[in-house]
């Protein structure tokens, strides 16, 4: 992967520190995660140390440093979901898939993350698989949903 962007005048874009987070975001969107190679390349482009890049990336919950599964499951554990048994939903998923948050299933099909709030609080408990949001997820519904991705 290359970060070089050439505008019409042919000169490469000069990145500044303000571009760091958007750059990391665009890499993660394409590659799914930030590899050590990505981090050192970004550090070179921005003329800052790898430590600084890691320092910023690890500060924010959005960035991950290991490869995701084919489908990413996000369980919302915002307050509304917590009050409506979101934690139980998380436990049910852990039981079904035998993984913990931050891990990927051995067949590489799913990875699991907990997120602070997906903003669909009125439909709690909520989970997201890739771009699709599911509201009012019960244990039975969860099984059906997961099966539809198998």
């Amino acid at each position: 992967m290359t970060l070089d962007k050439f505008p019409a005048n042919g000169n490469p874009i000069q990145y500044t520190q303000g571009d760091l987070i958007p750059l990391l975001q665009s890499i993660q969107e394409r590659a799914g995660y930030l590899s050590p190679e990505n981090v050192s390349e970004v550090a070179r482009k921005l003329h800052i140390s790898e430590n600084e890049v890691y320092g910023v990336a690890s500060f924010y919950t959005q960035f991950r440093f290991n490869a995701p599964g084919r489908h990413s499951i996000k369980i919302c554990l915002g307050t509304a979901c917590h009050v409506r048994s979101g934690q139980k939903l998380m436990e049910a998923i852990e039981r079904e898939l035998h993984i913990k948050p931050g891990e990927t299933t051995s067949d590489g099909l799913f990875d699991l993350q907990r997120v602070a709030c997906l903003g669909c609080c009125a439909l709690a408990p909520v989970m997201q698989i890739d771009d699709q949001i599911f509201g009012r997820v019960t244990a039975t519904r969860l099984k059906h949903i997961l099966e539809s991705y198998a």
């Binding site: 500044t16 987070i21 958007p22 990391l24 975001q25 320092g55 500060f59 924010y60 919950t61």
Partner: peptide, 25 residues
């Protein structure tokens, strides 16, 4: 538009500015 990267403390304005500037919030 600047997309945040997930940090509750960035609701605090000086932390938010740090994040826009590409630093730890």
């Amino acid at each position: 538009i600047k997309e945040g990267a997930g940090a509750f403390v960035c609701g605090e304005e000086t932390a938010l500015f740090a994040s826009i500037e590409g630093r730890r919030g």
